[in-house]
Design a protein around this nucleic acid. Structure first.
Length: 355
DNA sequence: AAGTGCAGCAACCGCCTGATG
DNA sequence: CCATCAGGCGGTTGCTGCACT
């Protein structure tokens, strides 16, 4: 049995709002406020509307300082970056964009931004693949020898946070990593959490290692003695640690070509919507999904899977499509400014999250 | 000019959460 | 502790206008 309706559906008007209704609602709220009770408000005004409808109309259209359309490039970046990070939490994303409503952001993403990104991505994909090919060469010279034919990882030198590769790209990543940590902290504060169930993740990742993709935030907890706590950074948008690399391995794990296969995953195609979130999760589950993203985790069953296809969502945009488009810095230029205070008073706990 | 398909967007629906009694 | 309720949220629907044939 479903929930009782918030109002009498038969007696309320539905559909587009008339200018007269808008004027009534706006005038009343400007003079008296909402009174903290949206349900009772339409009766006070004499509107035959559902309270929820009034609230939505006010928040999305009548409220002062609402902007419609004309999203800037910076706003695009913020939306994309946050979508990658936290998924379709439109209210949170909209909160970072003054004058924008969650509905607006949601519509903008669904109708324009995804397509815009996809079109842009097509032009860049070839160049990116060429760069990836070059990195494969570099990597093979230094790292392939570290890979064994079993699942047991060799002990690497215990150099905390040191890049494994001597690739110049790695050198300037520290600030990037710190920025990710800042965002991570913010996300925790916004409702995320980071559990320490990495043993389970480890197990699942070891058995689910095909078609793996990399989230933008690939933090993981301090795993175990078998996996070194180091990071590889393949480009400006994707951070990978050894643990994640492990996920990249093909099931055959046949030494020399396995890392190549892992690197190939940068171009693999996974439905973005599925990667970031799966529908019908509770908030708790979504937050767990967020954790998984930060772990760089892959859980085929849970829906945060990178690579196991599911059937909800119809986006043709892939993870690879999006991540290659997102530049991290533009997001922070605005995002960080609005959230800086929040970040500063939130101590980073290395015991929980190891970079 | 008429029909069709599609994109954009406003609004609705139903579920979840937190507050309150 | 439980039930109820309003607010909030994300997903979905349906209307409108435009482009194309």
């Amino acid at each position: 049995m479903g929930r009782a309706p918030c109002c009498d559906k038969a007696s309320v008007k539905k559909g587009p709002w008339s200018p007269e209704e808008d004027a009534k609602l706006k005038s009343y709220i400007e003079q008296h406020g909402t009174g903290g009770n949206w349900i009772a408000l339409p009766q006070k005004i004499g509107l035959k509307r559902c309270g929820k409808s009034c609230r939505l109309r006010w928040l999305n259209y009548l409220r002062p300082n609402i902007k419609h359309g004309g999203f800037s490039e910076e706003e695009d970046n913020i939306i994309c970056s946050l979508y990658i990070s936290i998924g379709s939490r439109w209210s949170i994303i909209a909160a970072q964009l003054p004058g924008r409503t969650d509905n607006d952001v949601k519509n903008y993403w669904n109708t324009r931004l995804k397509k815009k990104l996809l079109g842009k991505h097509k032009k860049e994909q070839q160049a990116r693949r060429a760069a990836t090919a070059r990195m494969k060469q570099d990597y093979s010279a230094t790292a392939i020898n570290q890979i064994t034919t079993s699942y047991s990882w060799p002990q690497l030198p215990a150099v905390s946070h040191a890049p494994v590769l001597s690739n110049p790209i790695l050198v300037d990543q520290e600030a990037h990593i710190k920025d990710q940590a800042s965002l991570q902290k913010l996300l925790i504060k916004l409702g995320g959490r980071f559990s320490d169930h990495h043993d389970d993740h480890n197990h699942e990742q070891q058995s689910n290692i095909n078609n793996i993709n990399i989230p933008n935030f690939c933090y993981r907890p301090d795993m175990s003695s078998t996996v070194q706590d180091q990071q590889l950074v393949f480009d400006n948008t994707i951070t990978v640690n050894n643990y994640t690399n492990f996920n990249f391995m093909s099931e055959s794990l046949s030494t020399t070509n396995t890392m190549y296969q892992g690197l190939d995953c940068l171009d693999s195609t996974v439905d973005l919507d599925q990667f970031v979130y799966t529908d019908n999760w509770s908030d708790t589950q979504r937050l767990d999904g967020l954790n998984n993203n930060f772990y760089g985790s892959v859980e085929g069953v849970s829906g945060s899977s990178c690579g196991t296809s599911t059937n909800s969502g119809e986006s043709n945009i892939t993870w690879g499509d999006i991540t290659s488009l997102i530049s991290y810095t533009p997001m922070l230029s605005n995002f960080e400014s609005s959230q800086q205070n929040m970040l500063q008073d939130f101590a980073f706990d290395d015991s929980i999250i190891t970079l």
